[in-house]
Simulated assay, not measured.
Amino acid sequence: MKVYRFLTGPDDASFCHRVTAALNKGWELCGSPSMTFNSQTGQVIAGQAIVKDVAGKDYDPEMKLSEQ
């Protein structure tokens, strides 16, 4: 089974740490990162798609993808 997640958050060190933690748990980057600017808060928001192959499991909409 292949699982997909899209991580988002302010473009800061904590976002980079979340992506790094996911990579170290076997997730892989999927495509380029995206960024947008929130003019109301003055923040740049980053996003990164990640995917992971999980052997021996079938997809279930109730599963917590972050725990795979």
Rank of each mutant, 00 (worst) to 15 (best):
K2S: 11
V3G: 07
V3A: 14
V3L: 15
Y4K: 01
F6A: 14
F6M: 11
F6N: 12
L7S: 00
G9N: 01
P10D: 06
D11G: 03
D12K: 09
A13E: 08
A13P: 03
S14P: 03
C16S: 15
C16R: 11
C16H: 10
R18W: 05
R18V: 03
V19S: 06
V19P: 02
V19H: 06
V19R: 04
T20M: 11
A21W: 04
A22F: 09
A22R: 05
L23S: 07
L23M: 12
N24W: 05
N24R: 10
N24P: 09
G26N: 00
G26F: 00
E28Y: 07
E28W: 09
E28M: 13
L29C: 13
C30N: 15
C30K: 08
G31Q: 06
G31C: 04
G31S: 05
P33W: 00
S34A: 14
M35Q: 14
M35H: 12
T36K: 13
F37R: 02
N38D: 11
N38L: 10
N38Q: 07
S39Q: 08
S39K: 09
Q40F: 07
Q40R: 12
T41M: 12
G42S: 00
G42A: 01
G42L: 04
Q43W: 06
V44Y: 11
V44L: 13
I45Q: 03
I45P: 01
G47P: 04
A49I: 03
A49S: 15
K52Q: 09
K52L: 08
D53K: 08
V54A: 04
G56R: 07
G56E: 05
K57E: 15
D58V: 12
D58S: 15
Y59P: 08
D60Y: 03
M63Q: 08
M63Y: 04
K64Y: 02
K64V: 04
L65W: 00
S66W: 11
S66C: 13
E67C: 02
E67T: 06
Q68W: 09
